[in-house]
Computed example of a mutant assay.
Amino acid sequence: MRKWLLAGILATVLSGPAAAWWDGGHMQIAYVAYKHLDAPVKDKVDALLRLNPDYAKWTAAAPDPNTAKLYAFIHAATWADDIKTKAYNYTRDKVTEPAAGQNIGYADRNQHSFWHYKDVLYTPDGSPLPQPDPVDAVTQLKLMIRALPPTSGATDDVRSYDLVWMLHLVGDLHQPLHAVGRYTREIPDGDAGGNAESVIPATGESIALHAYWDRILGGYVSPAGAVFDADNDGIADIKVSPAAAQVVDPEAWVQESFEVAKQFAYAPPVGNGPNAVLLTRDYETNARNIARAQAALAAARLANLINAALK
């Protein structure tokens, strides 16, 4: 099943035009997902988002109430990254701490940076692998998916917190380098999903491989800018297989992204060491196409998850 899904993704993107997850990518994913939410679900979503302390900030630029709901949904997709900044004064906690996997709502003042990924560990040269982390994006998404329905018994505070995190994490798990940790003789402590390797794209600067993929769909952008970008050679018009869109198991997403990372993110000229390599046109074209397809798939799956939970 996973091989079939991956083949479908690759067939779609490699035959299409070249056009991620910084703010621009997460906001585009949220916008496209919102377009596919059922009307009653949009109202339920907005009621939950209003419990987030940033709701007024998210909607400040909206010209009318309906647009305010859209802007809140789009901007909420960046909140899990926003709380890493000094302005929020959230604690940078560790995956080994007792509270690493808690799900307690907005009373939680931890950044939980390890919730943003699940590293499937692998080595191309037989290097030893460590034990995987006990808490990651998959463990937490499963908790959140179970808690989101109103019949779950979770408080609205927890359900709001979980919804905001879900808007972000579904996108994260479709970024291929959020699903892999590569260990080589040159990088024996692991590359943290491409953060140890450097690449030189056509723009000429040296950048971490992970950041190169993160930025493909854009950096800082307003909700209105994300809507424009998505509708103009962004991800809004990318066709997603209905069968692929119905796969709502985070573990399956990780395995798909892991395979994409091995095949494309680590493709030549990327080597097994940390030294910066000059990317080829073929590599950059494939990366843009894969990123757009993965983001469109994330949007479709996010909409299906939320519709099912709040119908």
Rank of each mutant, 00 (worst) to 15 (best):
A80M: 13
A80F: 11
D81T: 10
D81A: 06
D82C: 08
D82S: 09
D82W: 13
I83T: 10
I83N: 03
T85H: 00
K86C: 02
A87K: 09
A87E: 14
A87M: 02
A87W: 02
Y88R: 08
Y88P: 03
N89Y: 04
N89C: 06
T91W: 01
T91K: 01
T91E: 01
T91Q: 00
R92K: 11
D93F: 02
D93I: 05
D93C: 01
D93Y: 02
K94R: 15
V95M: 00
T96N: 06
T96R: 03
T96D: 13
E97S: 03
P98A: 03
P98F: 01
P98C: 00
P98V: 06
A99P: 02
A99T: 14
A99K: 09
A100F: 08
A100H: 08
A100R: 07
A100T: 09
A100M: 12
A100Y: 07
A100Q: 09
G101S: 07
G101H: 05
G101P: 03
G101D: 15
Q102N: 07
Q102F: 06
Q102S: 09
N103C: 14
N103A: 13
G105L: 10
G105D: 12
G105V: 13
G105K: 08
Y106A: 05
Y106Q: 08
Y106P: 12
A107R: 14
A107I: 14
D108V: 06
R109Q: 15
R109N: 11
N110A: 11
Q111H: 02
Q111E: 12
H112M: 08
H112G: 09
H112E: 06
H112K: 11
S113V: 11
S113C: 04
S113T: 12
F114H: 05
F114C: 03
W115D: 13
W115C: 10
W115K: 07
